[in-house]
Design a protein around this nucleic acid. Structure first.
Lengths: 177, 177
DNA sequence: CACCGAATGATACTTTGTGTCAATAATGCG
DNA sequence: CGCATTATTGACACAAAGTATCATTCGGTG
């Protein structure tokens, strides 16, 4: 039920688990899925792959849609391209501590994220503790369970240090379930 | 870290775990928290307590803001009141399978929900499988973990029956992490 | 009852995202 | 290469969801 593998309980200590795919690799994937390779898509893709941490669609729109050298890219195109990239597993959709959706470059199978509410960094992990719960829930409720949503929020070591240095308590922010 | 108790691993088989508080009880709670008891707040509260399943803020706005007998209630007031009710634990905020936030009347401590993508029913449960994961994540990443978000999506028995009867596959809907 | 500040709600605005559709450009084919 | 076909684009309008402002109103206290 959990699309993330329960086998791998180890966590990657670095914000980006594996090197992101190259633009060319992704383009090949797109073609394989019947999509065309266009200029705007290349531009969106390049921008996306350059992002080390989660970003919102609007951030991308602002970045690509304004007076950049060359042709600005339309809002709709950015949204559509993000959707496509998510559908071919180049991007993961996730929900931030503020409840707003964002995207992050992620390797397939890495479905859950630990998010820093300070700097926005994301650590993806495959360990999924929900499967056992799903069995219990299925037994007790007779629901047909199709999926779940899990995000973990915290503050990364760097931001903890910064907070200490700045005299700002690290306990700010998130109060989620 | 998980505000839901890990002690109670049993699930309540009924959509509403415990009888919702009475309006008067809630009003007392509001006063205790330094809020005033006003007409609009009573109206919002009554509407909220009458809801057996999750609802969105906009639904309430539509319900209370239009040409109902008596004074229609402003959009801002509805949002503000929901915020207050959530802050005093009368309501839980949750995120539906479509990613949109909604509220549900919930008893404190019941922080996670199993949502039916057919009829919208919610089963709240306190079993939280994330605590162990949090320990692992804390050890491996040195994050200071402050919270998490967990929702489980599926189809309730009734909707499964309906789907079978209607010839509609039960496998529609949610494809979440 | 009068006062004070919290609360209200009309309005405008922001953010985030979707729908439409004529113009355009990417691929396949000859 | 040149053309036809069709996906794609992007400007625009629109919608949904929520926030900010602020003069007015109302609840509760003395």
């Amino acid at each position: 039920m959990c699309y993330a593998s329960i086998m791998d309980t180890r966590l990657d200590p670095t914000p980006i688990a594996t090197p992101p795919p190259t633009a060319d690799e992704v383009l090949i994937t797109l073609v394989r899925h019947g999509h065309r390779v266009t200029g705007p898509r290349r531009a969106v893709l390049d921008a996306v792959l350059a992002k080390p941490r989660p970003f919102t669609a609007e951030q991308l729109v602002a970045e690509l849609g304004d007076s950049r050298a060359g042709a600005p890219i339309g809002r709709a195109t950015v949204y559509r391209t993000l959707e496509i990239l998510a559908s071919v597993d180049v991007l993961s959709r996730l929900i931030g501590a503020d409840g707003h959706p964002s995207y992050v470059v992620g390797t397939p199978g890495h479905r859950h994220h630990l998010l820093c509410s300070g700097c926005g960094a994301a650590v993806s992990f495959t360990a999924c503790p929900v499967d056992e719960l799903v069995q219990t829930l299925t037994r007790d409720t007779d629901f047909a369970i199709h999926g779940h949503l899990l995000e973990v929020f915290g503050v990364c070591p760097t931001c903890q240090d910064d907070a200490t240095t700045d005299g700002i308590g690290a306990g700010r922010g998130v109060a989620v379930g």
